Amino acid sequence: MDAADLKSCSEGFLRTIEDQGIAGGWRWSIASGEQVWSPGFFRLLGLDPRSTVPDYGLLLAMLHPDDRAQLASAGEIRQGVVSPSALVRLIRPDGGMRILSLLSELGVSPEGRPLSARGVALDVTDRERLRQIHAAEQRRRQALYLTSYATTYSVGTDRIHDFPLEMAQVHGFSLQEITLNPFVMVVPHQREAFRERALRVHEPQARFQGTSLERLANGEVWRFRIIGVPLWDEAGRYRGRAGMKYPIQESGAAVDA
């Protein structure tokens, strides 16, 4: 796992690793000069947010001298140049060394003028510890759908859905079928209408909220609420969708199709 993998992680997992001091993010508004670091980024660097002013130059200065060239300089970022990914050694104020996976992105205007820069960092010094945390998050997400039929999901710009494996177990279809065509879970007499309504929000990248009747592998039919919102980067580029799915029967009992 490296910093690029954080894009596909759930908000819960991101909060967990930030709280443990092994991940964090930074952003820099080039126009205003404002720079902001997340609490996790301060912890990752071993710095006190009460006495430290966020500064990209400070981050560069804390890297091992042999690794600094892997990142764009502050001047290069102002000119619209970033180093998309890097693996570097960080020297903390206490002398401890950590290995960081860094991912950086540039936000630009329609004319290509650099407007902002941002990045995320992941401490990969102890990859086994990270693997265990990630595995625990996966188990939590999986158990959630098995016990409550509720989950979060994401949809890429290719319209491929990312669902937990347990959704296939609950509904009786293969995960590949559900990933490519999530409407297969909807009961036949509602499927086409629900599909058309859901797909209409992709082109204008609009918000979506609807309900569907879905059949489970045990034959029960449950009513679900589906919520989806578009995702954008700082340059206004569409990055896909994120959403939630959860049952809405007040009694928790199955309904008739």
Rank of each mutant, 00 (worst) to 15 (best):
G75A: 15
G75H: 14
E76I: 10
E76A: 15
I77T: 13
R78Y: 03
R78Q: 14
G80Q: 08
V82M: 13
S83C: 09
S83H: 11
S83Q: 12
A86G: 02
A86D: 02
L87M: 11
V88W: 06
R89F: 04
R89N: 11
L90S: 08
I91E: 09
P93M: 08
D94V: 08
G96A: 11
R98D: 02
R98C: 03
I99Y: 08
L100F: 07
L102Q: 04
L103I: 04
S104I: 04
S104R: 04
L106N: 01
G107V: 02
G107H: 00
V108K: 01
V108M: 01
S109A: 14
S109L: 10
S109Y: 04
R113P: 00
P114N: 06
S116D: 02
S116F: 04
R118M: 10
G119E: 05
A121M: 01
A121S: 09
D123N: 13
V124C: 00
T125Q: 03
D126K: 04
E128A: 09
R129C: 05
R129G: 02
L130F: 09
R131A: 12
I133L: 11
H134M: 09
A135P: 06
A136T: 14
A136G: 11
R139S: 11
R140S: 09
R141H: 11
R141L: 09
A143C: 07
L144K: 11
L146A: 11
L146N: 12
T147F: 12
S148N: 10
Y149K: 06
T151P: 05
T152V: 14
Y153H: 15
Y153F: 15
S154W: 06
V155H: 10
G156H: 13
G156S: 15
T157C: 11
T157V: 15
I160N: 06
H161K: 06
H161C: 11
H161Y: 15
F163P: 03
P164S: 10
L165M: 06
E166Q: 07
M167Q: 14
A168C: 05
A168M: 03
V170W: 06
G172Q: 02
F173I: 07
S174A: 05
S174E: 09
L175D: 03
E177C: 00
T179M: 06
N181T: 03
V184N: 01
M185A: 08
M185L: 12
M185R: 04
